[in-house]
Nucleic acid binder design. Sequence first.
DNA 1: GTGAAAGCGCTAACAC
DNA 2: GTGTTAGCGCTTTCAC
Lengths: 337, 337
Amino acid sequence: MGKRARTTPTRQTTINDIARAAGVSKATVSRVLNSVETVNEDLAERVRRVITDLGYTPSQTARSLSLGVSRTVGVVVPDLGNPMFHQVLNGFNRAAANDGYHVVVADSFEDPERESVLAQDLRDRTDAVALFSPRMTRAALLELLPRIAPVAVFNRTTGKNAGSVRIDYHAGTIMIARHLIELGHRRIVFLAGPADARSNWEREKGLVEIRQAQPDADIIDVACGYSFEDGYRAWPAVRDTGATAVIAFNDVVALGLLGRLAEEKVSVPDDLSVAGFDDIPFSRYSSPSLTTMTARLADIGEQIWVVLRSEMTAEPLREPIMFSPGLAVRGSTKELS
Amino acid sequence: MGKRARTTPTRQTTINDIARAAGVSKATVSRVLNSVETVNEDLAERVRRVITDLGYTPSQTARSLSLGVSRTVGVVVPDLGNPMFHQVLNGFNRAAANDGYHVVVADSFEDPERESVLAQDLRDRTDAVALFSPRMTRAALLELLPRIAPVAVFNRTTGKNAGSVRIDYHAGTIMIARHLIELGHRRIVFLAGPADARSNWEREKGLVEIRQAQPDADIIDVACGYSFEDGYRAWPAVRDTGATAVIAFNDVVALGLLGRLAEEKVSVPDDLSVAGFDDIPFSRYSSPSLTTMTARLADIGEQIWVVLRSEMTAEPLREPIMFSPGLAVRGSTKELS
DNA sequence: GTGAAAGCGCTAACAC
DNA sequence: GTGTTAGCGCTTTCAC
């Protein structure tokens, strides 16, 4: 007797209380809750009354344990401060909610070590997880994937060990570079992102191709970063190159640079053309508006959800999904005068 | 015999598997997992080995049910597309993660009806919930609060029925208006937000005070909205008033207007001064940079977490926390010439 | 120090 | 159609 793990009850009202008050078994209450048709209508009505009278709502934790499913998924993001991820997350969340799923978000704060732990932890309390632009090594990723399946990955290749959705930064980079070259620019700076970031590496690869195809164009790498401040601070280095155009690692960096240029009385696009990546909402409204690689971020978020949902089925679609970027030519780029 | 609710197991490895493989009881495994000191070191080591060998991680769902606590909280947000909420959410998430809590977010898409349902649902699977700028009526809010406690509310009064954190938009509005009046402006447009939004109402109240204190200043209400597009489209209406300064409902609206003004060749701040609310990151980097009410959004998110955490204790701090805004005077406002 | 077993709040198979 | 009961995977009391 008296062998109980915990004395204090968790919830004030449980299915047992409802059953007792309605004078039925908890099985019947459960049936009513899940609208099983075979319940006698009078009984059902009585149970419903008691439920509303007592203001009862079932514990989703208990339900999850019993069902083996929580209708919740996790997302690991490297930097919740980046508007790009906000957009993708927004689309993902919207699509998930639409299918009756909840999403719990974990920020790894750009720490590759933390990603695996967070992913595992999330997986232990949800039905699946999505990894947004994981920073971990490929080896770590391939080791992690099978452990936390079902899983979908954004912006990394998975070798069909998981569903994946990617933005074709390689093609995007080429688009932007060609655009500037067509405008007559021959001395172009690339403000590079974090050296270890996969997506930066893809941009660099695109530039290598451009350099080969257009030997007369001089594309200069300048180490920069991914934040506003990084773009803001990059100006002196850019100026020293004597370039007439800049390709920034992303829109945030481009906008940071734009802010600095306004202070320095450097006219964009008259004195300098500037382009970015991602088409975050603000890029359309900056002055001048920003020429950028567009990527329909919310749609991508939605697509990641579709892939993740498919991972939760018997036969997931492992074919990598590649989003071809577009080019939004706006006010910040102009023909070389 | 054979009376089982579900045949297929949820997890591939459970605490039972570990116990069996290590030749101990699951109580011992549990002790090792939770680093209870009283376990024999040799046994503990054996258990640990089995755990890593089998790559076992405990089900957090089962753990939550048993403990009666999930170390997860929910947040209901009216619009995940608004950068303002991103900032607050970011601060909140950071602080929560720091205390070992997870956060699951639900977007109500500006639908007041949905807020209550989402809040209750979230509460049924977490330890507490935070309501960000709930749009529901006060009656609905007061009815909901006790049902979902522990709960914290952002930007609404709760009458001490829950912890609350607010931004003093009333004071902020007065600051901005005074700033413009001191610069000599006497004809000022207020681009109003959603009519039913509490925070818009507070701004209006501030303006009423200003109108009394400064009878010579003409402050004109122009219905607008809360989005980029709303600000962008507001230009004709603003022009028709002949105002020399604009107070936008928030930074997003202000930036939308700024974008339009650049297209229309209206010079800011020479022809028109513009100010906003919230100090979202982009406002610092727009051209011109935006004069705005600053609110340290990430700090506020952190504070909401502190309040929510206190709600989870025996004696919560119900004293409403009011954040006094500051004024960041930047490039978009200027003395009337 | 360790194990047996009750309990967290549900669901669903089975018996009646 | 309804109730009884085993079970989801953990934690913790109690007895040894």
